[in-house]
Amino acid sequence: MPSLKDLKNRIASVKATQKITKAMKMVAAAKLRRAQEAAEAARPYSQRMSAVLSNIAAAVGSDDSAPRLMTGNGQNQTHLLVVCTAERGLCGGFNSQIARFARDHVRKLLAEGKTVKIICVGKKGFDILRREFASLIIDRVDLREVKKIGFENADQIGKKVIGLFEKNEFDVCTLFYSEFKSVISQVPTALQLIPAAVPAEAASTDAAAAIYEYEPDAGEILSDLIPRNISVQVFRALLENVAGEMGAKMSAMDNATRNAGEMINKLTLSYNRQRQAQITKELIEIISGAEAL
């Protein structure tokens, strides 16, 4: 049985923890709002990009002039996985969800006898994947110093991937990130970057119906566009990730705060009970002492 003083100390420490988790939750909420705004602001670009891309792709068709980044190099042996996770923990199952999803994928590919290479974006995913696939990780990107993710960060990753592809380091590239559904739900997602899967749905819109003049020719525009599109996809994934991380952190910290509240209630109850017991005990001692006289 802990003494009264012990209980008092416990309550004080839990209260301090609760204050921290509460503050973290509020910070996460503020950052989440900003991340959502950033994701929102980036949406027009990626939307128009995919519309234009499907337009040109339809114009060029799938003949030989289509760039290699789009058609792939016809092989399916070496897979490159770009796994994007957060830089910090304390956000519930967010990082482990992505890592687990990627790990299952790696296992599946390895079982099929494929070669796997991994690029880790974010420290947490690297820490988790290193345990099992240390030899497969060829590179890691550190975004810890980055306060607000800009397009340059994504562009660097995109260029790195394209550079590796040009050196024939891999055949297929897949991007792993967490799609932000809502504050409480983030879904780990895999997106194939190379060969680029071009959305075909825009073919029926008015814009596609117009006969375009291309300057320079369509093939050249396309080969300029696809690397850019890869960077845009990475950028979008990173933004989604930040929003997801903050959402997960917010709900994790909310849970922690609530838990701490429950704990404080329980501890306060047993503290009061014990104090009462002590008072009763002292009274009995005095009364029985008086009666003995």
Binding site: I56, Y212, E213, E215, E220, I221, D224
Partner: peptide, 19 residues
């Protein structure tokens, strides 16, 4: 500033795509 030289776009321009 298009790659093939500067171009001025006004209303009712023909559909064009340029880098």
């Amino acid at each position: 500033p298009a790659t093939e030289g500067e171009m001025t776009v006004m209303a009712n321009h023909a559909p064009t795509m340029t880098t």
